[in-house]
Amino acid sequence: MIFGYSFGDLGSILAMQGFAGLILFSVYVLMALGLAVIFGQMGVINMAHGEFMILGAYVTYLCSHLFTAYLPGLFAIYFFVAVLLAFAAAFALGLLVEWAMIRHLYRRPLDTLLATWGLSLVLQQLYRSIFGAREVGVELPDWMMGSQHLTDTIEVPINGLLVMGLTTIITIGVFLLIYRSNWGKRIRAVMQNRTMAAAVGIDTEFVDRVTFGVGCGIAGVAGSAFTMIGSTSPTAGQLYIVDTFLVVVFGGAASLLGTIASAFSISQTQSTIEFFLSGSMAKVLTLLAVVGILMLRPQGLFVLKVRR
């Protein structure tokens, strides 16, 4: 008996909390992946990352309404269309932002941070003007609702499973893109040595722009997935931005594996503590642990061995 629970109960609690942690983990990974591409690979701090995510969420919200109104027969699969559209919208906005703002500031990382914060304020107000200040939720098709009973005491929600599936697909996609494709080779070449990459004929400006766009696009997909487990409001993105940055920094900025490992440890720690203490204390303890470890090991968990 621990804390008044029997071991059977405790096992179920651990499994359920573990699963809740896995969903949190998936959302963290989705958000952090886009950031890992932009911050980890390009070294650009994009404080508007959360707003790109919310863009994806609003696109999904619009989709659900459009399908209800015009294509009710296809409503069951609207979510997949929404994910693609969310990616496209965030990707396009990302390209625009890179062209208009980011490319002028590559040499001044701290200024990029401030400028993108300004962008995030503008986007927030834009969402508020268009969609209103209140939170909106999407309608889910019937098959995505409900939960799957594994045993008598353990059940898992289906939308959680979907989020995890989506995360897995995106993660594998990003991994293939960066480490296995020619395109990824170019991205890494530009990031490691811009001058030499340009000298061997890589269009570095184009690579920068598309990389930024892809990072934003992934944020859009994260936002789309986010609508399945929470509601969307104009300022929701801001709530997650610090967490997401910490996930990426904690994992070691340039390492995808590190990002995933750190998202896993942070989310599991938080959801486990959450059960025994209050939610806010869980968050405080988790963040303190992360910051504490970062102070001892500022380069993060996983480091690329490069000479600086």
Binding site: G43, I45, P109, L110, L113, V242, F245, L246, V249, S278, S280, M281, K283, V284, L287, L288, V290, V291, L294, M295, P298
Partner: peptide, 21 residues
């Protein structure tokens, strides 16, 4: 640089959550 900025930001988040909690 940017790392320091993010860490200080995390401290701001921690302290706010702590005070509210």
């Amino acid at each position: 640089g940017t790392y320091f900025a993010i860490i200080t930001q995390a401290f701001a988040a921690i302290l706010t959550i702590l005070i509210i909690g």
